[in-house]
């Protein structure tokens, strides 16, 4: 069964994370909790960079991001979100903005976190990344920066999964060799080199590259699907990121 067909089967979409969360709506469910947890852990960096771009210091940004997630997950804001709400990305940013405007100042004097939920956020590495982003793209407004880092984070998730798939099949070497071809077409003779190193035929390498690209594209669509509400939005989101990143 090709990936596009599986994608199109309705079963798949209903299990994507954002759909699960939306489906759960008001009722608490471990699936929804898990899905939401995953989403938050996966996409926290864009939030962090947004806060930093807004001008908060490192400790403030840490505190704010932590506080936001704690409140976000505890308060179950999502219960009020209707199914048509669209993308998790926009929703998260809106909720964060709201939080920054209303809540965070108030909570400054209160105990940090306010609850038991405490996400393990790696702010050290985040700062490295942020510093790099800031240095190379200083004039972005926080919203654009948010979307860009979101797009990058998305890729990281996908690549991790892709690597995982190869590793499970014991084919991590192959992954390492083939992955540069995700960037574009090979130069003259590159296929031959790789074929040699992997002990495969050139045609085999070609097919493998083709399949890798397909799988990559599928996983990207799946991951986007995790963060939108209807399958028709996947294309829009992907096209948006492409435009954003290649501008």
């Amino acid at each position: 069964m090709s990936s596009s067909e599986s994608e199109r089967s309705s079963n798949w979409f209903s299990t994507t994370h954002w759909s699960v969360v939306l489906e759960a709506g008001q009722t608490a469910s471990p699936e929804a909790d898990g899905a939401l947890s995953y989403l938050c852990q996966a996409y926290w960096y864009p939030l962090y960079s947004f806060v930093r771009r807004k001008g908060y210091t490192i400790p403030e940004a840490e505190d704010l991001t932590q506080g936001f997630f704690a409140k976000f997950l505890e308060k179950r804001f999502l219960r009020s979100v209707a199914r048509e709400k669209g993308k998790f990305r926009s929703f998260l940013l809106a909720a964060l903005s709201h939080y920054m405007a209303n809540e965070w100042d108030k909570s400054q004097t209160l105990k940090r976190g306010g609850g038991s939920i405490h996400l393990p956020l790696d702010t050290v590495h985040a700062e490295d990344r942020y510093a790099h982003d800031l240095a190379h793209r200083p004039s972005l407004d926080p919203g654009e920066a948010f979307d860009l880092s979101w797009a990058e984070t998305l890729l990281s998730l996908v690549m991790e999964r892709l690597r995982g798939e190869f590793e499970r099949g014991g084919k991590q070497d192959r992954f390492g060799e083939l992955k540069p071809f995700l960037l574009g077409d090979p130069a003259e003779g590159e296929y031959a080199d790789v074929a040699h190193r992997l002990n495969m035929s050139q045609q085999g390498v070609k097919s493998a590259v083709y399949r890798l690209r397909q799988r990559f594209r599928d996983l990207v669509r799946r991951e986007i699907g995790n963060t939108v509400a209807t399958s028709s939005e996947i294309d829009d989101e992907l096209r948006y990121f492409i435009r954003l990143m290649t501008a």
Partner: peptide
Amino acid sequence: PLSPGAAEGLCARCLYSMLGREP
């Protein structure tokens, strides 16, 4: 220049550019 967050050492920009191409 590659960002510290670049996955698998691959340039995000090029990856998206590839995705934009019709297979």
